[in-house]
Write a protein that binds this DNA or RNA. Sequence first.
DNA 1: CCTAAATGGATAGCGGTACTCTCTACTATC
DNA 2: GATAGTAGAGAGTACCGCTATCCATTTAGG
Lengths: 215, 215
Amino acid sequence: MRVGELAKRSGVPVPTIKYYLREGLLPAGVLTSPNQAHYDDEHLRRLRLVRALMEVGGLSIASVREVLATIDTRDDSLHSKLGAVQEAISQPGSVELDPLAVEDVQGFLRRQGEEECADVTESNVTHLLAAALSAARSVGHDHFQDLLDPYLEGLKIIAQADLDYIASRGSRDDVIEAMVVGTLIGDTVIKAVRRLAHAQVSRKVIGDSVVPDEG
Amino acid sequence: MRVGELAKRSGVPVPTIKYYLREGLLPAGVLTSPNQAHYDDEHLRRLRLVRALMEVGGLSIASVREVLATIDTRDDSLHSKLGAVQEAISQPGSVELDPLAVEDVQGFLRRQGEEECADVTESNVTHLLAAALSAARSVGHDHFQDLLDPYLEGLKIIAQADLDYIASRGSRDDVIEAMVVGTLIGDTVIKAVRRLAHAQVSRKVIGDSVVPDEG
DNA sequence: CCTAAATGGATAGCGGTACTCTCTACTATC
DNA sequence: GATAGTAGAGAGTACCGCTATCCATTTAGG
């Protein structure tokens, strides 16, 4: 197919596709003439992935490029590939870390039997966690880390479901893409379902009055 | 205090504070002269909240303004306030919804005993969920909704912890702020811990080989 | 009291991001 | 042979979150 049909089938405007080609988010089509190229279903699939990463995952073009590069690297074991994918999709903001929050993270990791926790900022994931706890502290929530253990309890169930889902995919390529899609779209799904669960629990527990007027 | 000290104590540059004042993210200080105003600890607290919402929650200025407006509205019960806060912090992207994904969401809600599910797009939260499942479908993941039930199972544990945390706050104002902070910063913490749980489970289950080379 | 620094207020400009437009030379199709 | 589509590439645009500059006034220090 040519770029027009790719645009029609993906819902992405032609100029935007050209832009993605220039930015290296999409591999070039096969040239049949100096100004004619053919694109196949792989291009369509990749294009939809790019859009999903941006729209649902909220990733920037630069992050998408990094994620795609990680996906396309073909030398790691699946376990380390999962790690690499997670690093690529977990860009922490530029919050400066509260040492107490760093300590909280290290304590948590230690509690979970993680031995090698030299520097929290070495991994995007632990950095992200420390940044979030720092932000909590900065707004006066200095016991937010107490939630880590119950969170992990719930997330073990979720992570098991995630891994089952990923492993149920057919080819190795599908497994790797499912890591990205499952993790990023999963984040959004979890966000939404958590809010629904809040509403459910709140309806049962809080009812309508739990706290007096003003403290 | 004057704006200079507010800047020093919050780490936010003076011009940025002025900008936030203009944008209505911060209430004006008390004028003591035509060009002198006093700010108090409430301003500092609010400023830090604004930064936390933007840096960790990834909210835009417009969203922050909306959230603050919701916080400051003082007429709802806590239960409905939680709902309002959730709506304000759950802006769905502009993905067009797949009818099948909408059906998935409705089925899920029905399964959970939610009766009133006329229009999924009426609530930002269900819209967000439908958008995420639509994106999953668009990249060929048309059974992602099978994860909803295990997700809810894990998230019930998390939501209970959240509600306990929120309810443990002192004043009504603190409770309301904890809804925002706990939900948004909680999202990020959950994101990070989920990745750690992935690594943990993956180390145990996947080990290093689960899927053959190529399908 | 005088001067330097800071302040409130307002307007304009800047840097980054994600497109979108425009152009040229060519090709496919009717 | 007229019309529409195409590859490739540079310029332009729109929005967002600041940042810089200016002004008249005021405060703080010697």
